[in-house]
Design a protein around this nucleic acid. Structure first.
Length: 446
RNA sequence: GGCCCCAUCGUCUAGUGGCCUAGGACACCACCCUCUCAAGGUGGCGGCACGGGUUCGAAUCCCGUUGGGGCUGCCA
């Protein structure tokens, strides 16, 4: 275990969206830094030109802020590209110390020698080649030997060196590879704990070898379980809904999202799953994180979100809905929105939505022509509905005072006249007014 | 192919050798409540992958099998 002051880093690559798995590791790092009064470092892995757009970095920062990691409360953002010179220095030192060598093998030549399923064979290890255009620099993996990775979650997996090829440090064009850059950055930043997804575990022995060859004590590692889809595959942008921005835009509450994310691979003490964030911060321990992958279940997330919405005060709920009612997201024209009507409806809507994005669909009949659900219409308008509706119109037009209780009493009377209980009698009225057969309580809505 | 990781209800998990006849949550089903739909309440369905050990005793420890996943780039 490291005796260094606690410094952790979250190092996403700017790819245009913020992955839910990344959000979870960010949270882990963030909590741990706070628990140990250490430092949380945000470093953007931007060495790939194709992934280096300023707005993407902004996206990462704003998504972090959404889940409570506010700019100003952490160190950064740092950019990997800022360390380019340091990367090259490290490569030179590795070469000078005899821990790395240049290689002039073509990929075809290597494949011919070793076959299709094997890595590089170390052909140039002792050829004493110097640097030249087109020659990659390779790390000389100590042979024979083995590396034990001490991992807070995985135990101590051992990797035999003869299964690790002499991997490339510098490309033939002289640019640095991610693996080296990552190690050098972590060293330069004095990172004490590297907490990241399990997919990086197989690279860890290589990185650990690099730390040692560069004369430093490796950090404490922790590889957290992957988040997977229903087919148990790593969540990917292409086939799975993984962008935090998307959940935010659909009306998930940050607190619900955070709570749910923390439950994947870990759970708080006690019987409750929905817990205040303060308890999470207090009781989270890396050692308690499981090692098996977890399915990211949107249905459970929705249930959590619904619960968090219900726990909001009516005022907070009303406020939280604003973007969906009066902003760009509102499906009706803004002038027709009536805040007073919405205020009366809000508590009724609150127990009926799972995400804030569902709210407009619940109250649209107040501010717009209702969109008619044809199936409901056909079902509700069968006889004796038309006759009943005529009576309803006559009665309601004259009704004083116009209150939910009075409306209900009147409809009950009319229903009896047509041989219908209230449950049946309300259906045609509801469909006529809201366009649908389900929705908030009818008489309050009227 | 090689290396590594993983394995408790459908899903997320509790469980660290006796408190386990395996607990909770989501989902699902039923009932109650009810103007629809929700919410709320009550109950139900459902699991230790398999085979060997170790032990008085195993979901828990060991080995193997099977299954799943990740990595295996001059990507990050």
């Amino acid at each position: 275990m490291s005796a260094r002051p606690y410094r952790v880093r979250f190092a996403p690559s700017p790819t245009g969206y913020f992955h839910v798995g990344g959000a979870r590791t960010a949270l882990y790092n963030w909590i741990l830094a706070r628990q140990h009064e250490g430092t949380f470092v945000l470093r953007i892995e931007d060495t790939d030109e194709a992934r280096n757009k300023p707005e993407w970095t902004e996206g990462i920062i704003s998504a972090l802020a959404w889940i409570g990691v506010e700019p100003g409360t952490y160190e950064g953002p740092h950019f990997q590209s800022e360390y380019a010179a340091t990367h090259l220095d490290a490569a030179r030192k590795l070469f000078d110390d005899g821990n790395a060598y240049y290689c002039d093998c073509t990929q075809e030549a290597v494949r011919q020698r070793v076959g299709p399923n094997k890595g590089y064979d170390g052909f140039c290890r002792d050829r004493q080649l110097g640097p030249a255009e087109g020659r990659p620099l390779r790390f000389k993996v100590p042979q024979p030997g083995s590396t034990t990775v001490v991992d807070l979650i995985r135990g101590e997996p051992v990797f035999d060196h003869d299964t690790i090829e002499d991997f490339v440090l510098l490309r033939g064009n002289g640019t640095v590879m991610f693996l080296l850059a990552n190690v050098v950055d972590d060293m330069a930043m004095n990172i004490s704990h590297v907490i990241r997804a399990e997919e990086h575990l197989p690279n860890t022995p290589k990185q650990q070898l690099l730390w040692k060859a560069l004369g430093a004590e490796p950090p404490t590692w922790a590889h957290v379980p992957l988040l997977v889809n229903e087919k148990r595959q790593k969540l990917s942008k292409r086939r799975d809904p993984v962008a935090m921005e998307m959940y935010r835009d659909e009306g998930y509450l940050a607190d619900a999202m955070k709570n749910y994310l923390m439950l994947l691979g870990w759970n708080p003490p006690g019987d409750e799953e929905i817990v205040p964030w303060s308890l999470v911060e207090l009781s989270f321990k890396l050692e308690d994180v499981n090692s098996s992958p977890a399915f990211f279940d949107v249905r459970k997330l929705r249930a959590f979100n619904a619960d968090y919405i219900r726990k909001l005060s009516v005022d907070d709920f009303t406020e939280a809905c604003r973007p969906w009612l009066t902003g760009d997201k509102a499906p009706w024209s803004v002038e027709r929105f009536d805040p007073a009507a919405w205020e009366r409806m809000a508590p009724l809507v609150q127990t009926r939505v799972e995400v804030l994005g569902d709210v407009p669909g619940m109250v649209d009949f107040l501010f717009d022509e209702p969109t008619r659900d044809d199936a409901s219409w056909a079902k509700a308008m069968a006889a004796p509905a038309p006759a009943l509706l005529d009576d309803v119109i006559d009665t309601f037009e004259a009704l004083q005072p116009w209150t939910a209780d009075a409306l209900k009493a009147e409809l009950e009377l009319i229903g009896t006249k047509h041989g219908l209980k209230l449950g049946k009698a309300q259906a045609p009225v509801r469909v006529a007014v809201t366009g649908r057969s389900v929705g908030p309580p009818l008489f309050e809505a009227l």
